[in-house]
């Protein structure tokens, strides 16, 4: 079973890298992610002589509280992906119907496979930065993804692992 281990470390001046539990606490279990148009749409665009939009990069936060993964709506609009569904979601203003979108996620610099989501919640993540990584948060990885993985969160060791 392949395993992706993600380490949070800090290196004191002149010293060796050390586990940095506060880094994992502050940033959360985050992965670099690229959001791409779904393969079926990429194929259709190529068949009709249209350019396939370039992937958009940022970070994805593993959110065990979310039943459905989410993607930033601005990102999905930049990719030109159209909605394929509506789901009922609890929000601060009460239950609301929210649009869902298909997309492919890849995880650069990791051994994780590309994931083709048939349904991602469109969310407003604009302006949310991931601590430590200093990059934009553009996706949440919910339990629809985690049902394919084993997640181990090691707080004292400042690591998390995904096995698949």
């Amino acid at each position: 079973m392949p395993v992706h281990n993600h380490f949070y470390t800090a290196q004191p001046p002149g010293g060796q890298p050390q586990p940095f539990p506060q880094g994992l606490q502050l940033a959360g279990p985050c992965l670099p992610v690229q959001v791409e148009v779904p393969p079926a749409l990429a194929a259709q665009l190529q068949q009709t002589g249209q350019a396939v939009p370039a992937p958009l990069a940022g970070f994805a936060l593993i959110d065990t509280g979310a039943s459905l993964s989410a993607v930033d709506g601005t990102v999905i609009q930049q990719l030109g992906v159209q909605p394929i569904g509506m789901v009922l979601v609890g929000t601060a203003g009460g239950p609301q119907q929210q649009a869902t979108y298909p997309a492919r996620f890849t995880f650069p610099g990791t051994t994780l496979p590309a994931i083709d989501f048939s349904s991602l919640l469109g969310a407003n993540l604009a302006g949310q930065m991931v601590a430590i990584h200093q990059g934009p948060l553009i996706a949440l990885l919910g339990r629809d993804l985690l049902q394919r993985f084993v997640l181990v969160y090691n707080g004292p060791g400042a690591t998390f692992s995904l096995s698949f």
Binding site: A70, V87, V89, A92, P95, L140
Partner: peptide
């Protein structure tokens, strides 16, 4: 209904 507490809590 889908549950995304980060959104539910605002």
């Amino acid at each position: 209904a889908e549950s995304v507490p980060a959104m539910t809590l605002g």
